[in-house]
Write a protein that binds this DNA or RNA. Structure first.
Lengths: 222, 222
DNA sequence: TTTCCTTTTACGGAAACCCGTAAGCTATTC
DNA sequence: GAATAGCTTACGGGTTTCCGTAAAAGGAAA
């Protein structure tokens, strides 16, 4: 079982629960092993390494309230930075995010070891995850939502997100080409933009740009 | 100080933290005084009344994951139902919602006694709230966000939400009059709908319908 | 009923969007 | 270099939206 664990979680109440879970698992845990900011988490990890007693596990949230300026602003940035200075650090993500697509994405892209959503049985879920990780296994929570009903096989490209965001920001479609050229983004003609919107809407069975914005906002795509 | 408190919270970890807070405040709290579903909360309250030992305080979340069919589906419904059978019950809302406008709305409309957002210092915040309530005072957390930057003095009417939702669902603007007439909603001409959209967008300094949808989705208006 | 005011509806032209077709461009292959 | 395929752009006309103006309908008071 783990001996040295760091908790990065900005919600005090959530942090307390995680600490209690560690206690229940007989993992020694003192007051200095939890932080409320990503920057603090990173410096703790760095310090632990230089003291020759590196952390074995990082439990982190994904989104952190930005009430004071931070270098590292999100859980995923923290994970990247931490892995950069300590590649063997195990990582458990504990977040309100409950879409299996997001969790699986973190598994494959950031190679996290476990994902537990803050949901009905999250405390038990946490324990199961930690035990699994202690046995060197990955853990993807069974409490994750199968995202939206029939998940359409479509992933938005950066280009898509760019032009959709422009629409959502009130830019008229006909002006989008100008801004694309300005930033030298490849297909920049109005015709291309129109075609792309049309393709997206056809695939997703969406009939208007307004509905597309609603769709993207609901799924936090933009 | 309170002696009998009920916790309605679907997140196990959050519930654990609230329980710990009550313990820290020397409020006697046993295993049977927390529930994960609103329906259970209501029946507990009812039972406590009939046993002659009613609860003094209800601590509840606002949104509950609907993983099983429930009669009472949200915190606000629970509060209404609870107050219906026990008008003197004190209520503290503990939610991820952090907009002061929402909290103030609950204060005035449901006459809740305290609102604490799940945020950085929520555990300390909870303690402060409970102590304040024990002294028969109301408590509006200082950690609430002043909502969006300059809060525009504009509130969406039901009519507004109806027509905006139609747009967001992909209905073309020109077809909206038909559906309004069908449900006998008052101004139903295309001209009226156009004018209303124009008024809303002018007031909010929004230039397109797409941006309006984004605005409403961001603020959870629709 | 008449008058006045507000709300709702009708209308029309300009602008924007939608969508199909065709032309142009680029890169790979022969 | 020529040919082909795939991507990008240009163009055009039908539809929808935008927005101003004016007519019609409702409501309250005289």
């Amino acid at each position: 079982m783990f001996k040295k664990v760091l908790i990065a979680e900005d919600h005090e109440s959530a942090s307390i629960s995680v600490q209690k879970t560690l206690t229940d698992l007989n993992i020694f845990h003192d007051n200095r092993n939890y932080v409320f900011y990503c920057d603090d988490a990173l410096s703790r990890i760095q310090k632990a390494i230089s003291e020759g007693e590196p952390y074995e596990l990082l439990i982190t949230d994904l989104s952190f309230d930005e009430d004071s300026p931070q270098v590292v602003k999100s859980g995923s940035e923290l994970i990247k930075a931490a892995r950069n200075i300590q590649p063997d650090l195990k990582v458990l993500v504990f977040s309100i995010e409950n879409r299996v697509s997001v969790a699986a994405g973190l598994m494959s892209e950031l190679d996290i070891d476990a994902f537990v959503p803050k949901a009905r049985n999250d405390a038990k879920d946490l324990k199961a995850a930690i035990e699994k990780m202690a046995a060197d296994r990955k853990y993807l929570s069974p409490n994750l939502k199968k995202t939206f009903s029939p998940e359409p096989a479509f992933t938005f490209t950066d280009y898509d997100k760019t032009i959709i965001s422009m629409l959502a920001n009130g830019k008229p479609q006909k002006d989008i080409p100008f801004y694309l050229q300005r930033n030298s983004i490849k297909p920049s003609s109005l015709s291309s933009v129109e075609k792309r919107f049309n393709t997206i809407k056809t695939i997703l069975d969406i009939s208007s740009n307004e509905q597309l914005i609603a769709y993207c906002k609901d799924r936090k795509i933009i």
